[in-house]
Write a protein that binds this DNA or RNA. Sequence first.
RNA 1: UCCAGCGUAGCUCAGGAGGUAGAGCAGGUGCCUGUUAAGCACCGGGUCGCAGGUUCGAGUCCUGCCGCUGGAGCCA
Length: 447
Amino acid sequence: MLEVINNITIDDIRKNNLVNKEVILRGWVWNVRSSGKIKFIVLRDGTGFIQLVVEKNNVDNAVLEIAEKLTQESVIEVRGIVVENSRLKFDKNKSNFNVVFIGYEMIVKDLKLLYKTQDYPITPKEHGIDFLLDNRHLWIRSSKQFAILRIRNTIKNSIREFLNKEGFIEFDSPILTPSACEGTTTLFEIDYFGDKMYLSQSGQLYVEAGALAFNKVYCFGPTFRAEKSKTRRHLMEFWMVEPEIAFATLDDIIDIAQNMISYIVSKVLENNLYELLILERDISKLENIKLPFYRITYKEAVELLHSKGHEFEFGQDFGAPEETIISEAFDKPIIITHYPKSIKPFYMKLDENREFVLNMDILAPEGYGEIVGGSQREDDYDLLLMRMKEENIPLKEYQWYLDLRKYGSVKHAGFGLGIERTVSWICKLDHVRQAIPFPRMLYRYYP
RNA sequence: UCCAGCGUAGCUCAGGAGGUAGAGCAGGUGCCUGUUAAGCACCGGGUCGCAGGUUCGAGUCCUGCCGCUGGAGCCA
């Protein structure tokens, strides 16, 4: 008598050898095709996709009747034998509805209908982005979204793993803040029992306090920016990891940042080949992400733009076209350092001649642009005060921040890495809105 | 916020020299034992974004508004 394995997922079938084992799966009907007395059901259970085969001569009439009436997203419990099937190998030239079958299928013995779904809105056909975003709560069931969000999970886990190994502690910065961390950008205002508070646009100033208390810290969470920007690289709510290290210089955080990015990519390649295949990602581009990355100064980047025939005024900040030109010129992430102080915030440490700052941006390759921004921080009380006055920063609200330069100030540095942009690059998405479960965009926040 | 484009069936779109709508998919009913966004046959499905205007007549032309998409600025 064959033992039936219950409590199993499609992921288990993919990872363990369960050929010729009888198993029970529960999941949602993805698609049904039939050819007379044989029916093919594609099942998804949240961990993957598998084809079920219902043959007339193999099952009771009752089972056949259920199989005949299945609709998309109906819920079933199915018992059957796992078999290998070479016909189900992924073929790039044949669209598989973007489902990658796993080399196995299940010959069904029994089938129970647990929930009958009717008129599921997302059909196996093209849909417009407006419709899909309105149905984001259902769209996340689709194969590509499934793949992207599983890769996002790997990326977040790998970041925590990496920082833990490096001796960091997670230090939570507040989301409600009494003042702006970066004076320039717009903030979401909150009524806090009659006072004005803001949703945090960066945990950086708080992790600086953390670094002087715990040496190596990072915060990891959502941040909010009320910028009226409407591009493929912007969300109003996005996730950022911000490591900050005491006694560190610009060079030190460049090392940490590129090691971290390289670790993230290696973990995705280790854990998510299936998902990358669903996304039809060119894996060789990711395998190429090896240390060290390219490193140039702002000055050299401007020269590069000029050599490409691009008009650009020295002293301006790089916009989307510049970032794209620069990042397309390299096959690995590119680190740009020493920007002019006039285009960077007050807390960045000045270099010797006080013209440039000790900062770095990291641009992802393939035209993806900035994913990391960081700097060594100004640790001298008087210089910081001078910079704050120059930029009209309200000193009263930042007294606590100045205090950090008054009581045991040390050189320190840190950076922020944007999660959605990183996901977007690794998955080669055309927009960051697909890199987060429920994107918050300008004028679009449903569901 | 600025520039450009688009709003027709549940979805993706066609019609667009003004004469009151059409295809695929999805849904329904059949046929087919290896399909793979299967195929074939038949069926049901529409205040053509909203408001006004021109006209005998507007999905089609004009004006305004609303919604969405793409791009720019700002940034991660």
